[in-house]
Design a protein around this nucleic acid. Sequence first.
DNA 1: ATTTGCTAACCTGTATGCAGCTATGAAGAG
DNA 2: CTCTTCATAGCTGCATACAGGTTAGCAAAT
Lengths: 228, 228
Amino acid sequence: MSESATSENSRTRAPRGQVTDIYRTLRDRICLLRYPPGMLLGEHELAEEFTVSRTPVRQALQRLEYDGLTETRNGVGTMVTGVDPNAFRDIYAFRLRLSEMMGEFPAEDEAPHALSTILLLQDRLVALRGQRDMEAFWQLNHELHHATNRLIANLALRETHERYYFQASRIWYSVIEAFFEEQLADLASELNEIVGALRAGDIRAVGYIQRNHIAFGLHRVASAHAAV
Amino acid sequence: MSESATSENSRTRAPRGQVTDIYRTLRDRICLLRYPPGMLLGEHELAEEFTVSRTPVRQALQRLEYDGLTETRNGVGTMVTGVDPNAFRDIYAFRLRLSEMMGEFPAEDEAPHALSTILLLQDRLVALRGQRDMEAFWQLNHELHHATNRLIANLALRETHERYYFQASRIWYSVIEAFFEEQLADLASELNEIVGALRAGDIRAVGYIQRNHIAFGLHRVASAHAAV
DNA sequence: ATTTGCTAACCTGTATGCAGCTATGAAGAG
DNA sequence: CTCTTCATAGCTGCATACAGGTTAGCAAAT
């Protein structure tokens, strides 16, 4: 399990050290829903797992709270925040705009690297067919995000794009099980389209492709929510 | 001076406690350039000032680092980050887009409150004429930001809008001294325009007004930088 | 049987001691 | 006089002890 080795720096301005490792690990677990909303995380418990004292764990938890992924209450503990439907709509609407904005700050020289990365992702996606391996699928999405994120030449937009990717992914995975096959096919065509766009050197197109597939996912989630 | 009482919660999802107070105080000092870039902040020193131990101070400093306002190096201390010209361009370009986006998520019911707030700001701005009181001017800008921020109905956009306002304001104030009169006049007309827009109930217009005045400020800073 | 009050266990918030790291300046060699 | 070296003071990173707060469960009274 590539747990503590979830690729290297995904932030551009990355703080170093073990606190960041703990932060990323916990963030991934939350976004993977291995820590479902409402779950209580004890500092002492986590400190034992990571073989450190409570201090670094607390720092990681405070970053998570600052990200809005957890909420700490005195005397109780740190719990994973729930998915507020309003925040859900807001985040998705905002992400659509961010993706549309991507083409206005294209990092042309990153295109070749992104292309080769995504070609590899395509192979791994094929290998994933029929396995229903949520974690591998998530990891794929994560790396796709990372690759496209590097195509953004604007630091501020890049940070924001990443920030809300994580907030959104957490929500998204709470309903993915019902649409796994569909999302798999969708991701396949998204990768295909992005490859085409990158071969044409059209980063703006990459943004619009991403926007569209975010919208598709949103539509599925919305219809699922309406059905319930 | 209304130091520790810099209005109430400006974040929508606000953490509580004294750590947040310390954080806001330090953030304001940095954005005011009372702590200029490169300045070294000692944990022990701040702990004495706020009459707490190093622990809460460290938490506040870590949030500031997460915001990109400071940088902590082991064995040295926490220093206020400098104004990287590249980051400067990125943040400004991004803020322009965010302001343009504002009208797409209008919080109609907040308009009356914003209007009355801004009318008060107009009076205070008049009283400021000829005083060259940087801190009061900054406070005015801060409250204007707060008022317009509440006009955004999308939580994600609102958070981002606020986040980069603080990053930008810090840069902005490093050159304001040379343009104080100009900026004063500019702010006056911005307030006038916003009042007109709010009276018409046109929040989209507020966003565009803000965008334009951000661009004006950017132009001044750019020309100043070219002159140097 | 239900409700109320209390206590004890557990959790986070804070303070503080210690280890590791960095920079500065004085002292000595060239 | 200049350059190198090393000791030292001061800082952050981490661990840990203690204080304050919350909740669950039991017991007692109605």
